[in-house]
């Protein structure tokens, strides 16, 4: 029985040893091509004719954190410890910058009859990275479909660390009846995540209509860090961008109903890379353990044989 237990322990040890290196070393296959499929459907069936654009936002580092690509490195974005709400806010923030600055997608395409769109579409192949997917509004009969921007990290990993290089996602749409559309108020509210020491007295917020500046307002403590634009046209894609984010702060813009939440979070001291240092070592430590263990077990086997 003890030999069986020992064998089990050794097998588990061997499994951990050989399974661990890829995880410890991080994305060993970052050069491998990835694929993304958008499967667009609602309760009425497949959504065809929807145009989506793909933007490569960040590289995936060996420790599985992200590093913004050159195009986006200048934007004060927060990338650490994001939950689903944080990822959604990041997608909204990026889509605002993309609309404002007219940034070009790395790929784009239109969903086919089955509601599917495969990336790469126009480019020969895609590499690992964090991608933003932005869809254009689509009117089907008397219904307007407004795709929600979202981020997807390729390859995708599950909780066990297994990587998936061919990923299918199901974009979400907001549906509106065209005949119900009417002018509405939109508000913006500033949220500070800091100790208040370096906070500026005011910040500027720009409201964009289809990528063109519609209004610029100054928010400050005397106005309760909020503003409301009355009776804005319904047929316009409204977005908010903070103009001139204060030094030392990251920004995220999210939308809850008719209110844009603009959050400024102070970067921690240092370079903002998070709390973990990069892995800078080879896996040498198991070698002496395996060697000593192997010799020990061989000697034990030899003794058993001698005993018989």
């Amino acid at each position: 029985m003890s030999v069986r237990c020992f064998c089990g322990i050794v097998l588990v040890f061997c499994f951990v040893l050989f399974a661990a290196p890829p995880f410890i070393e991080g994305y060993a296959e970052t050069d491998r091509a990835v694929r993304l499929t958008l499967d667009c459907r609602d309760q009425d069936g497949a959504v065809s004719g929807a145009r989506f654009s793909l933007y490569r936002i960040a590289d995936v580092l060996p420790d599985r954190t992200w590093s913004l690509t050159d195009t986006y490195a200048g934007y004060p974005l927060w990338l650490q410890d994001l939950d689903s709400a944080g990822l959604h806010a990041l997608a909204c923030t990026l889509s605002g910058y993309i609309a404002r600055d007219g940034l070009s997608p790395c790929d784009s395409g239109i969903t086919g009859d089955m509601g599917q769109l495969h990336f790469p579409s126009r480019q020969p192949e895609m590499t690992a990275g964090l991608y933003l997917v932005i869809g254009e509004p689509l009117t089907v009969e008397d219904t307007k479909l407004l795709p929600d921007p979202f981020l997807v990290c390729l390859p995708e990993t599950d909780t066990s660390g297994a990587a998936f290089f061919d990923v299918t996602v199901f974009p979400k749409f907001e549906k509106r009846a065209v005949w119900k559309e009417a002018a509405a108020d939109l508000s913006v509210e500033k949220i500070w995540l800091d100790d208040g020491a370096e906070r500026p007295e005011s910040i500027n917020i720009q409201l964009y209509c289809d990528g063109v500046v519609y209004s610029t307002v100054t928010l400050g403590a005397e106005y309760g860090w909020r503003h409301t634009w009355p009776s804005l046209a319904a047929g316009c894609s409204w977005q908010v961008v903070e103009d001139g984010v204060p030094e030392g702060y990251a920004v995220s813009v999210d939308r809850e109903g008719q209110t844009f939440l603009v959050t400024n979070r102070a970067y921690p001291a240092g370079d903002g890379t998070g709390g973990v240092l990069p892995q800078t070592g080879r896996l040498w430590w198991p070698v002496p353990l395996l060697t000593v263990g192997g010799i020990f077990v061989l000697l034990a086997g030899r003794n058993k044989r001698g005993g018989t």
Binding site: F6, C14, L290, G294, V297, L298, G301, R305
Partner: peptide
Amino acid sequence: KARAVSLTLIGVLLLASALCL
């Protein structure tokens, strides 16, 4: 004898793992 063979195989496996690594 079976136990002895098992232990020998495991020992070889461990040493081979160390060598590969």
